[in-house]
Design a protein around this nucleic acid. Structure first.
Length: 329
DNA sequence: GGTAGACCTGGACGC
DNA sequence: GCGTCCAGGTCTACC
C-alpha cells in the first residue's frame, strides 16, 4: 500500500544533525537543512517520479530534538511512495548519509586520531549519486563558496524535475547530456565549466567514464592510485577535484589541497611562507593519520568554522550560503 | 617536468 | 549605482 512515510534504521552511533551537517554539500541545493527542527529536506529521483523527502531523527517525547545515537530516521515524502520508491529512497538516503559505513571504520579513524572520539564525528555526508558528487566538485573549483551555492541552485532550477511540493531535484546525467554548453552557461552561470559538465554528463549517461565503467570508480576493490589517475583524466578534474571525489567515494588517504588548506596552515597551524610551501607542509602535517588523513584534516577545518560560526547544524543555508568564504576568516 | 596565462563569476572596493 | 580588481582550480601552450 503506497504511503508517504517510512522508517530507516541507522548505525548505533549515528546522529542525524551531526552526521548530515558534516560536509559543505549539505548547504548545496537540492539539500536543505532546517536548523530549527533539525530536519534534512531532499528532492530525490524515485522510480515513480520525483519526490521530496523530509528526514528527521526524533528524540524522546520530552526532548524531541535530542535523539539518542542510533535512533531510526523518520522519513516523510510529499507523495505516497510505492514499494519500489521506498526501496530507492532508502538506498539514496543510505548513500547520502553513509549509513553503510561500518562502526569499525569510524573506530579505526578514532583510534588513529582520538580528538574526535568524544564528539563521535567521523561520517562525512555526500550526495545520493556519484554523478552529483562529481558535478558539485566541479562547481566548487576556481570559485568562492557563494558561486558554488548559486551554480547548484540554478542547475536544479533550470534542469531538475519538480516534486509535488515544487522543489527541484538535482538534474540527471541524461538531462544535462542533452543540453548545449551555452545553455548551462546562460541559465546556470557555470562559466567555462559548461562544456566540461556536459561532457561528464554524457559519460555518466553512457555508463562509462573515460576507459572504465562508472561502477569501476565506485568499486572498493579499485586501487587508489589507479582511481586517482583515471579521475584526473576526466574533464574539469585536476589534483584537487580528484582528491575530493576520492574522499566522497570513501577513500581518505589524499588531501584536496587548495587555498583553504593554505589558510588553515597559516591561521591554525601557525605556518608561514609562500602558499606552495605551506601546501606541502600541510600535506606532511597530516601524514601520521595515514588512511584517515582527510578526515583528520576536514574535522580540524570544520572545528575551526564551528569556533567562528557555531556548530554546523545551527547554520542557516541561505545565510551561510551567501557569506561563507574561507577568505573571511 | 615546470611555469605562465587564460578561463568566468561574484564579491569587495573605490568613486 | 557603476566600474575595476581580485580570488579560485584546471587546462593548454610554451620553455
Amino acid at each position: 500500500m503506497p504511503t508517504p512515510r517510512l522508517t530507516i534504521p541507522v548505525p548505533t552511533d549515528f546522529l542525524l544533525h551531526r552526521d548530515s551537517c558534516s560536509y559543505g554539500y549539505f548547504l548545496l541545493a537540492p539539500n536543505h537543512w532546517h536548523p530549527g527542527d533539525r530536519r534534512l529536506d531532499r528532492a530525490l529521483h524515485l522510480p515513480g517520479g520525483p519526490a521530496l523527502v523530509r528526514v528527521r531523527q526524533p528524540g524522546p517525547a520530552d526532548c524531541p530534538l535530542r535523539p539518542k545515537p542510533g535512533s531510526p530516521l523518520d522519513v516523510r515524502s510529499d507523495r505516497p511512495l510505492s514499494a519500489a520508491d521506498r526501496a530507492a529512497a532508502v538506498a539514496l538516503v543510505t548513500r547520502m548519509l553513509r549509513l553503510d559505513e561500518s562502526r569499525d571504520s569510524i573506530r579505526a579513524f578514532h583510534a588513529l586520531d582520538p580528538r574526535w572520539r568524544r564528539t563521535g564525528e567521523g561520517r562525512l555526508c555526500r550526495s545520493p549519486s556519484f554523478f552529483e558528487d562529481v558535478v558539485k566538485t566541479v562547481t566548487s573549483c576556481n570559485v568562492g563558496w557563494p558561486s558554488t551555492v548559486g551554480m547548484n541552485r540554478r542547475l536544479c532550477e533550470a534542469f531538475g524535475e519538480k516534486t509535488p511540493s515544487g522543489v527541484h531535484t538535482f538534474p540527471t546525467p541524461s538531462r544535462l547530456a542533452r543540453q548545449r554548453p551555452a545553455a548551462l552557461r546562460g541559465r546556470c552561470g557555470v562559466g567555462y565549466r559548461d562544456a566540461r559538465i556536459v561532457e561528464l554528463a554524457k559519460m555518466f549517461a553512457r555508463g562509462r567514464l573515460g576507459s572504465h565503467p562508472v561502477a569501476w570508480y565506485e568499486d572498493p576493490a579499485t586501487p587508489d592510485d589507479a582511481l586517482r589517475e583515471a579521475l584526473i583524466e576526466l574533464p574539469g578534474i585536476g589534483p584537487y577535484a580528484a582528491a575530493n571525489i576520492m574522499q566522497l567515494l570513501g577513500r581518505y588517504t589524499l588531501l584536496p589541497l587548495d587555498s583553504e588548506s593554505v589558510r588553515h596552515g597559516r591561521t591554525v597551524l601557525g605556518m608561514t611562507g609562500p602558499a606552495a610551501s605551506i601546501m606541502k607542509r600541510v600535506a606532511r602535517h597530516f601524514e601520521p593519520f595515514g588512511e584517515h588523513r582527510f578526515r583528520s584534516y576536514w574535522f580540524e577545518l570544520l572545528g575551526f568554522y564551528a569556533s567562528k560560526r557555531g556548530k554546523p547544524w545551527t547554520w542557516k543555508r541561505d545565510e551561510v550560503g551567501a557569506t561563507f568564504t574561507a577568505a573571511k576568516f
